[in-house]
Amino acid sequence: MVVLIAALAALVLMSALWVVTLRNLFRAALSLGLVLIGVAGLFLVLEAEFLAFVQILVYVGAILTLVVFAIMLTSKVQGRAPDVSSRQPAVAGAVSLTLFALLTAVTQPIVWAQAPGVAAVPLATLGQQLVTTLVLPFEVVSLVFVAAMVGAIAIATSTRPPER
């Protein structure tokens, strides 16, 4: 299992690196797709099958598609011009490396106890939790959906390009 996780981890990391470094935005978006699939795979390994499918369906199927559409729509503005990555790569790199070091330093020393016989969460339990204990966040998320839709429509339709 560790081998599987390692392989998937390698895939994810490589793709993530492509996402943040590739100049071509389209290719960066596609790399994101790879990342998402890798993460879905990891979900599977972690016995969260439902979540893996949701990840694929929603993330890759909808969100990534949306991103690609947006890229297409805005590419006219810039043309397929080089996306000069970054303003301050050194600083950003330093900062993120520091952050990584920090996080690792915090998490590595933790010895993960081998918990015997803890079963994975069955889907039924998840469903049940969602409509009993977690019903409030559930409903709030639907509200957020509504707000996001209304907001997006409002933003996208109200702006008129100003006169130069």
Binding site: I5, A9, L25, P89, G93, V95, S96
Partner: peptide, 26 residues
């Protein structure tokens, strides 16, 4: 610990991207 490290690394890569990239969609 591998998975934890992976999530750390992903997070940090995301931060790097957020700070370093110029394109809004990036």
């Amino acid at each position: 610990s591998l998975v934890v490290m992976l999530s750390n690394a992903l997070f940090c890569l995301g931060v790097y991207g957020l700070l370093a990239r110029r394109h809004a969609i990036a």
